[in-house]
């Protein structure tokens, strides 16, 4: 609306530039505003405050005898806690780790040798591997075996055979006492 400018003074090219500027400015403002308005909708689908509040679990390890394993829940997922036998520790440490699909030292996966703590979710497509009970199949490496697509994990929870690309995750945890851990 060139209200104060007589039409004779505005050439066609100049008018076009002004109009283009207004169009682009309006479009950009609208696009930015819409994007900003969409963010609350998108963010509302992220974990809510009460979900985030459930992000740590305390576990008492005292009742778990050597050779036993327990499964606890952390963030809705199973966490494997295995009290390893000396031979299991030796087996895990004596592998040439550089030959593994996801090379990691056993020492880098535990804080105390006898306690192995893992997120019990297969890194292939999210099933829970077997091997927590003594009667479960534990795969070719005496660790865990995922029945969904046949991934074998060793006594350090490392992938040895099968389609899974990575070792079982080690969750963040700390020993709050000698026999208590807090996960998360």
């Amino acid at each position: 609306m060139a209200h104060s400018v007589p039409s004779t003074q505005v050439g066609p090219s100049e008018a076009k530039t002004r109009r283009d500027f207004l169009l682009y400015a309006t479009s950009v403002t609208g696009a930015v505003g819409t994007a900003l308005a969409l963010w609350p909708f998108i963010h509302s689908m992220n974990p809510a405050a009460d979900v985030l509040a459930l992000s740590s679990s305390e576990i008492d390890l005292a009742p778990v005898a050597p050779g036993q394993a327990i499964t606890v829940t952390w963030r809705g997922k199973p966490v494997f806690v295995r009290h390893r036998m000396p031979d299991e520790i030796t087996a895990a440490q004596n592998v040439d780790f550089s030959t593994l699909p996801d090379p990691q030292k056993d020492e880098g996966r535990v804080q105390k040798q006898e306690w192995l703590i893992l997120v019990g979710v297969c890194t292939h497509l999210g099933c829970v591997p077997l091997g927590q009970k003594t009667t479960d199949p534990r795969g070719d490496y005496n660790g865990w075996f995922c029945p969904c697509h046949g991934s074998h994990y060793d006594t350090s929870g490392r992938i040895r055979k099968g389609p899974a690309p990575l070792n079982l995750d080690v969750p963040p945890y700390v020993f709050t006492t000698d026999t208590t851990i807090r996960i998360g």
């Binding site: 609350p40 509302s44 992220n46 809510a48």
Partner: peptide
């Protein structure tokens, strides 16, 4: 609706959860 529970025992609380816990709820 993604955060609402249509049950007499949970409806009121699910709305309060939307108000307090859900991001931008």
């Amino acid at each position: 609706a993604m955060n609402y529970t249509p049950h007499t025992a949970y409806a009121f609380e699910s709305v309060e959860r939307i108000m307090r816990d859900v991001n931008y709820g």
